[in-house]
Nucleic acid binder design. Structure first.
Length: 201
DNA sequence: TTGTGTTTTATTGCCTCC
DNA sequence: GGAGGCAATAAAACACAA
């Protein structure tokens, strides 16, 4: 096309279609976006246009409609992504807090093993009993997680932290604000199995 | 009025389908 | 091979700020 001789439209008295013409075309487009030749000819006669003009109008209209739809889908996906990203961030923070708590409690429990008395934490330990067992019992009375609970949770949370770290690596460190904008949404969306890659434009 | 950005109409070339 | 669709693009028409 570039550089080639092409029919100039400069000699054509090009005018925009009237509001009524546009309205009729829009109405038809709503029911049939790809009308048959006969319908196009009928519409052209009715509107005082060339059938070719009607055909071109539908072609351009389809193109506009398509790009509009893509825009809408993009903004919907972006909004979903933003929601997921903020949920992820909240969970990450919660996880971090829980890990900190677990660490603090674990230290407390470990220190408690050797102490006879720890009034500060209301743990009553006796040298004649299994300290950890007693600690567990007191924890139950206090309605807080027991040491064995904590150990189980520590394992779980550590696994979760690993998973989060892996997710960060896969997602290009989503958690860091400076990189969040560049996070590839396909990390979240790939499992749809659709294979569509239109969001890569 | 004019420069500039956006929208709309039209062309071109390629592709697919029958 | 012709008809019709689509993507890319040109160019006219239009909107609007300065």
């Amino acid at each position: 096309m570039s550089g080639g001789i092409k029919k100039s439209s400069r000699n054509i008295n090009r005018r925009r279609f009237s509001d009524d013409q546009i309205k009729s075309l829009e109405t038809m487009f709503e029911t049939e976006s790809r009308p048959e030749l006969r319908l196009k000819q009928h519409l052209a006669n009715k509107l005082g246009l060339q059938p070719r003009q009607v055909a071109i109008w539908f072609q351009n209209k389809r193109a506009r409609s398509k790009s509009k739809q893509i825009e809408q889908e993009y903004s919907m996906l972006k909004s979903n992504y933003d929601k997921l990203a903020s949920q992820f961030e909240a969970l990450r923070k919660e996880n971090q807090n829980l890990l900190t708590q677990v660490d603090r409690l674990r230290r407390l429990a470990d220190n408690g093993d050797g102490d006879e008395h720890d009034n500060k934490n209301h743990f009553t330990l006796s040298s004649s009993e299994n300290p950890r067992l007693l600690l567990d019992i007191n924890c139950q009375e206090l309605c807080i997680p027991t040491c064995s609970d904590l150990n189980r949770k520590v394992g779980y949370l550590e696994e979760e932290a690993d998973a989060l770290n892996m997710a960060q690596i896969a997602g290009g460190s989503l958690a860091s604000p400076e990189n969040r904008g560049s996070f590839d949404s396909s990390t979240f969306l790939d499992n749809t199995g659709s294979g569509s890659q239109w969001w890569n434009f």
